[in-house]
Write a protein that binds this DNA or RNA. Structure first.
Lengths: 223, 223
DNA sequence: CGACTCCATATTGTATACAGTATGCAAAAC
DNA sequence: GTTTTGCATACTGTATACAATATGGAGTCG
């Protein structure tokens, strides 16, 4: 007998997709970088066929861009696109929280623990991961799975830029206070207030990233 | 010198993805149907490699589901998922309209023409296409392209079920009146009112589809 | 000295071949 | 008659081979 959960796990192209996605998200493949299929497939120890299927998936997710007869390259997120993604999350996240309802005591404790670890995290990558996890845990009980998938896709899409900013200006005070305000409303049983605070967090929390990206774009177009 | 726009369109796997997507959307490949890669690749006149890349894309879009060692099958949309998708559109479409702003005279004329053709359309498929086009035209001026892409993806995802319903109960009066109410607000220069009417349209316009799907699911689980 | 052309090389796009696994039928056991 | 077991077949998963196109540099012309 096998476990009921990960019954089947033999899917190279899916595993490759996860690996390459991770390489993009954490910067081992930089924005704009071209993918050499032969080299990458050898590095991953697979042939080009499953790699290309993985690349095809990633292109349709928006992580890569495909140019005929030239190949795949890591799709750089422009400032505009970053702003556009973050103009959408204030619409989705608060609704997800509203549908999720007030958290259980255990759920609240988990949120508090994640936020503590977020504030105390040493490196930028861990901090962003914990921030993302906090937001996911906040809305995990939402029954609308499609909505959760969409939010998750947006988190992945913007992650590497948040990490980049956090490296340069590792200020976690504002985000931590936003989280605290939301949790306070949840503790008080005031769901609408929590949604409003979340919306505010989504609307303003990423202004520093946008500002940083803008400055960077103006400073060196060559970079 | 090259054109700035789409200079060449030689991409078999992308063309195949479009073709198969169309086959799914218009029902030539029914919900739950399994994909035989050899037969389908022969029918399309290509080999399995580009077909599989296309299938991989479609799986990541949610149109197909992939089971290891078994293959791809057309992903049936459950009633729950349909409801979830349509719980999201009232969040997105009104915001897109708000960002798009009031339409030009030409834009308004186009909307009116599309709505007339929608009401008068003979077959279900044409009607739904025109309805989709109307909604796309309504928000085409929205500068947030990410938002437009997300809405477009959701339209494609639900299309075949709308067509199926329209075939059985071809009532276009309610939708036509909803459209008319939105256009009236736009003519009057009242953008907030138009957004509110659009939100209402999105919240209630698909109740018949949900009701129909629910009845169908209860009636014959075998189908 | 700069720009252009042409060719060798590298890389992508597609097809085919092979291996591993599921599927369905037939025969046998209970 | 029902269930089980084994096998032949079909199909998917992956690797490899081949064709078409882009890329970069050397040589040449203005």
């Amino acid at each position: 007998m096998q476990n009921t959960e990960p019954l089947r796990r033999l899917n190279i192209s899916e595993a490759v997709a996860d690996t390459v996605r991770a390489m993009i998200v954490d910067g081992r493949l930089g924005p704009g970088e071209r993918i050499n299929e032969v080299r990458l497939s050898e590095a991953l120890g697979v042939s080009r066929t499953p790699l290309r299927e993985a690349l095809s998936r990633l292109a349709s997710e928006g992580a890569l861009s495909a140019t005929p007869a030239i190949g795949y390259s890591v799709r750089p997120l422009t400032v505009e696109e970053f702003e556009q993604v973050y103009a959408i999350r204030p619409l989705l996240d608060p609704e997800a929280l509203r549908l999720a309802g007030l958290p259980s005591a255990a759920g609240l404790a988990k949120l508090e623990a994640l936020n503590r670890r977020f504030i105390e995290a040493q490196d930028a990558e861990t901090a962003i991961t914990l921030d993302d996890d906090w937001h996911r845990a906040l809305i995990a009980a939402c029954p609308n799975k499609v909505l959760l998938e969409m939010i998750d896709a947006m988190i992945l899409r913007t992650r590497r830029y948040e990490v980049a900013l956090m490296r340069e200006t590792p200020n976690r005070r504002v985000a931590g206070e936003d989280h605290e305000r939301i949790m306070a409303a949840l503790r008080a049983g005031d769901l609408p207030e929590a949604c409003a605070a979340l919306k505010h967090n989504m609307q303003t929390g990423f202004d520093p990233v946008v500002a940083w990206l803008t400055a960077r774009a103006e400073a060196g177009a060559a970079a």
